[in-house]
Design a protein around this nucleic acid. Structure first.
Length: 985
RNA sequence: GCCCGGGUGGUGGAAUGGUAUACACGAGGGACUUAAAAUCCCUUGCCGUAAGGCUUGCGGGUUCGACUCCCGCCCCGGGUACCA
């Protein structure tokens, strides 16, 4: 009978489906293993030959583990939301849901035709209501835990796709999908607070069995750097100087927390500062304290009144009582209601919580409200309430300590005095900071009060930068441009000298503080800029100390050394100076990350709607869980206009506020598809659960994923987001593990026959259906595994597939010929061979070296064929072992042959064959004889041969003698069981 | 620029300090056949008639011995982009 792959493959695929062979349940008696593929986006092009590469690897691994008694969860699903379906819909007027359904059906058929052992009962589809309901649930959970927030942000806007792109979807300034130039636009956007987990996302990488390049890419993406935050005061003839009155809080004093530091910093800037010691600070009386302040402090149009905590309340009361306006009122960690997050305080009887806001507003001048992000005492909404009552600007910042009780609080200083904050990793070079640079987007430029004299020139530079797309910036290479701000200068906090401030696009707004101290002698970029614009370059780190001089070089010196020209620090090692100078300059040490919060809003139709409702009265209201899902309406005109398509659906858009019942509107943006894929691996555990995204017991049994396989293109985005969501859900109490994927392996790219990346435009795309039709699924699976190392990129070769097909036919023939004459027989050669093969294949599967495993199967097959050709019979147990070894790779043929041997049990769960190492031991070995490291001869000898005997035998050989003639032996090296090297002359 | 990979026959690749080129494709030759296909066998790194010499991107080094370890360089692929 001929090997008929079509008949056999159809037969066994039907068998597995009918018998639900690969459907699994929790079974506490068995060890679990969760083996997962990255689920595909079901594109209209159908399956690509790259897909089965990873799927085959996980299938081999899953089948291997089942044969070791593991309960293997091996699921498949669809990452079904996304732009291509919507773009196709716009072009062809077919609804995305129709296209997606069709594509999924096609993908499923194609994947099933390869005979993978998936549990199809757990299939998930991110675009289904049953799934995105829980994606919305996830959003709400993040929202209620403060991990989802909205803010106006400059976003990457693709004019062609008419959508916002995440930073990571922009490549070289163009859209990663359509390659149009991306522009900047300001929009209200939803974010997930990934930055809150930056440190954990970095540290936990160490515990993972992932490829090093992937871990590295994530480390670089998170981009941790340690440095200092330094304040550079602004001066200039138009920059005003103020007189400050600083009011401490409940149980505080002028000597407490940041007050001494703040006073000193302000005085350094030439201001006078009064910090009154408020009477009875531990049992404060409103009247007494207000009167004290009014009596002991002077208020005029140059005064800035500052209050911290309860001091802010006093400041408000003082402002209320003034007869003429002051320059400004700054409230830090302030409040206007007597309730606190942590514990009650005894202000009720001694304070009146009534304020004449109108009068305060009239007297207070410029009002700034600063709340602390993680304030333990003051409720979050207090900042907003004060702003609602008084107006002014509200900023939420992270203090050095909760409620601003650190010894230094630079954020407060920055709001009190005109100051530029910079982040630097090299505070040791501060004495060499000869100028400053701020980014074109820096808010300082918009500050009219500073009196920038060349405003026209500066504005021209700013708008020029905005016009320059990212791509143009790249084309201009590293040519530095910039404009000096006239009429305003900064003071180097170490030298006390005034230095110029420049605006230049080599300083980017999105990192650090958007401003830098420029140290041209020790930073290459600053060096180039200083050279171009003739700015002073001062060496402050000398590599060879002590040296008589430390001349400026042709490039920046970035290494370590000893300080010179650095006042009291001269002579100190640069490494040591880092902390010393930070303290001296009144700065604080700070850790900065490159990673930004995850922008998840998309102005698109084909995604999960963000479950938020906007109400005039109640503000932003989350959709109650019971109302989920927020259905994606089907009757929407989704053609792109720049607005979210959902705003054009009145039935979707107009709703009642869940909180007050008034007329309200829905959020019309949808979520980034990466949100859907950041939790799907949890859903597989409980794919049918209607009442929860996943069930606790099931999660505890199956998760985390033990082996995850997919393309390296997801090195940062998907994997980082999934890790973030896992940690967030863990902290909410839903999960008891920190990392979703314990082991990760990346499949290498399959290139076209021309060695280039497969693409429609190149016309080098291979259709897997044709290969399966012609050669069969087993051949396809084996070929993709045999091409080369799993993780390497490798070119497709249709020509070479025939070799795999020949191999399978050869296996088939061995069994055909043996079928009627099988019986036990002795054969030493085959015994060794079969044990060797079991060992090699077993080791290679666990290390993902499938190509050499297949090579071992081929070698074994040759031996079987040879034995048969000699008219000898092959022991049935060897034939069985061989089928078992072959079965993870070519399961259809293996099942068929297994049945042919008269077996009735399920091959899928049959124990994996074992090998006996004693059969692998050889009595004889081939001794290599080298002379001066070159192979000259070899001889079969016994393993028992001693070193001396080896020497004698080797030296006695005629061939050896020929090479040794006329030479002197200097020494001889014998490596037992391997070789002898005779070194001559 | 920086960070990762990688460079071995005509081709895909094997070998992680010990016989470089396993396995497969392709090519050449042979057997079987009326013939072809299929199958089976042999040959196949390069130079050389041969003895022999040379050979893992290039140049050095360590070692009795290096594809493998170290230093310098070249080339190819991927990621990243003035990150202070």
């Amino acid at each position: 009978m001929k090997y008929d792959h079509k008949k056999i493959e159809k037969k066994w695929q039907g068998y597995w489906e009918k018998n639900r062979t690969f459907e699994v349940d929790e079974d506490s008696d068995k060890k679990k293993y969760y083996c997962l593929d990255m689920f595909p986006y079901p594109s209209g092009d159908g399956l690509h030959v790259g897909h089965p590469e990873g799927y085959t690897a996980t299938d081999i691994f899953s089948r291997y583990l089942r044969m070791h008694g593991y309960n293997v969860l091996h699921p498949m699903g669809w990452d079904a939301f996304g732009l291509p379906a919507e773009n196709f819909a716009i072009k062809k007027s077919v609804h995305p849901s129709t296209t997606t359904k069709k594509n999924i059906d096609h993908f499923r058929t194609q994947i099933k035709s390869l005979g993978f052992s998936y549990d199809w009962n757990r299939e998930v589809n991110t675009a289904s209501e049953e799934y995105y309901k829980w994606t919305q649930w996830l959003f709400l959970e993040l929202y209620t835990h403060g991990l989802a927030y909205k803010k106006k942000a400059p976003v990457n806007w693709c004019p062609s796709c008419q959508t916002v792109l995440a930073n990571e979807q922009v490549e070289n300034g163009v859209c990663e999908r359509c390659e149009h130039t991306v522009v900047q636009k300001e929009l209200e956007q939803w974010f997930f607070k990934v930055t809150q987990y930056a440190e954990q996302l970095l540290n936990d990488l160490d515990s993972l069995d992932w490829p090093d390049p992937i871990k590295n890419a994530q480390r670089n993406w998170i981009g941790k750097s340690e440095g200092s935050l330094l304040q550079f005061p602004l001066v200039g003839k138009n920059v005003p100087t103020y007189r400050y009155v600083l009011l401490h809080g409940y149980d505080g004093s002028p000597d407490g927390i940041f007050f001494p530091w703040l006073k000193k910093e302000l005085e350094k800037r030439g201001s006078s500062v009064t910090v009154p010691k408020l009477p009875h600070s531990d049992t404060p009386q409103e009247q007494e304290q207000v009167d004290y302040v009014l009596k002991h402090c002077k208020f005029d149009q140059c005064t800035i009144l500052f209050g911290h905590s309860l001091g802010a309340v006093i400041a408000l009361k003082v402002a209320e009582k003034l007869s003429s306006p002051i320059a400004g009122l700054v409230l830090a960690g302030g409040f206007i209601e007597n309730n606190f997050r942590d514990q009650p305080r005894p202000f009720d009887s001694t304070f009146s919580w009534k304020f004449d806001f109108e009068k305060i507003t009239r007297n207070a001048g410029n009002i700034k409200i600063i709340s602390e992000q993680n304030d333990y005492a003051i409720p979050r909404e207090q900042g907003r309430k004060i702003q609602a009552a008084l107006g002014g600007s509200l900023t939420e910042v992270a203090g050095e300590e909760s409620h601003f009780i650190g010894e230094k609080e630079p954020a407060l200083l920055a709001h009190l005095a005109p100051t530029i904050s910079v982040f630097t990793t090299r505070p040791d070079t501060l004495f060499g900071a000869t100028y400053m640079v701020i980014a074109p987007e820096h808010p300082l430029i918009m500050d009219k009060k500073l009196g920038i004299e060349n405003h026209a020139e500066v504005s021209a530079y700013v708008s020029n930068t905005k016009k320059k797309s990212e791509r143009e910036r790249l084309h201009l290479q590293k040519e530095k441009t910039g404009v000096e701000l006239k009429g305003v200068r900064a003071v180097n906090p170490a030298t006390g000298k005034e230095i110029p401030i420049w605006i230049a696009d080599y300083c980017v707004a999105s990192y650090g503080t958007g401003a830098i101290m420029a140290v041209p002698a020790h930073d290459q970029r600053d060096f180039e800029f200083a050279k171009k614009f003739g700015l002073p370059i001062t060496m402050v780190i000398c590599p060879h100390y002590p040296a008589p001089t430390c001349p400026v070089r042709d490039e920046a010196y970035i290494g370590p050394g000893h300080l010179v020209e650095s006042g009291q620090f001269t002579g100190m090692a640069s490494t040591e100076a880092t902390h010393e100078i930070t303290n001296f300059a009144g700065g604080v040490t700070k850790i900065n990350y490159k990673i930004r919060d995850w922008l998840i809003s998309r102005q698109r139709y084909w995604g999960a709607p963000i479950p938020i409702i906007y109400c005039e009265a109640c503000g932003e209201v989350p959709v109650p869980q019971i109302d989920l899902p927020v259905f994606l309406p089907t009757d929407v005109d989704f053609r792109p206009t720049g607005e979210s398509p959902l705003t054009r659906s009145a039935s979707f858009h107009d709703v009642k506020c869940p909180s007050c019942g008034a007329h309200a509107r829905r959020e019309s943006d949808t979520m980034d598809t990466f949100v859907c894929s950041s939790w799907y691996f949890l859903r597989y555990s409980s794919a049918h659960s209607a009442n929860a995204p996943f069930e606790k017991e099931k999660i505890e049994y199956w998760l985390p994923v033990d082996m995850y396989v997919g393309g390296a293109e997801h090195a940062v985005l998907h994997l980082l987001y999934a890790r973030f969501i896992t940690k967030a859900l863990r902290d909410m109490g839903y999960l008891n593990f920190s990392e979703p994927f314990s082991r990760l392996r990346n499949q290498g790219l399959i290139l076209g026959e021309d060695g280039e990346k497969m693409s429609k435009s190149r016309g080098n795309v291979i259709n897997p259906d044709e290969i399966i039709e012609l050669y069969g699924a087993d051949t396809m699976r084996l070929y993709e595994m045999f091409m080369g190392p799993f993780e390497d990129a490798k070119p497709w070769s249709t020509k070479s597939i025939i070799g795999i097909r020949r191999f399978l036919e050869k296996v088939w023939r061995v069994y055909e010929c043996q079928r009627d004459r099988i019986k036990w027989t002795e054969s030493k050669i085959l015994e060794k061979m079969i044990h060797k093969t079991v060992k090699k294949v077993t080791e290679d599967i666990v290390t993902f070296k499938f190509n050499t495993a297949i090579s071992a199967l081929m070698i074994c097959t040759h031996a079987l064929t040879d034995t048969h050709a000699k008219g000898e019979k092959i022991p049935i147990s060897y034939l069985e072992k061989f089928i078992l070894l072959l079965s993870p790779f070519a399961p259809h043929m293996a099942e068929e042959l297994w049945q042919g041997l008269g077996k009735t049990d399920a091959l899928a769960f049959h124990p994996w064959p074992t090998y006996d190492p004693t059969f692998l031991e050889e009595e004889m070995y081939k001794l290599i004889i080298q002379i001066n490291g070159k192979v000259r001869d070899s001889i079969e000898i016994s393993k028992e041969t001693t070193e001396d005997e080896i020497k004698k035998i080797a030296l006695g050989r005629e061939t050896t003698q020929k090479w040794l003639e006329g030479k002197t032996i200097s020494h001889v090296i014998v490596i037992p069981n391997r070789l002898i090297n005779i070194v001559v002359e």
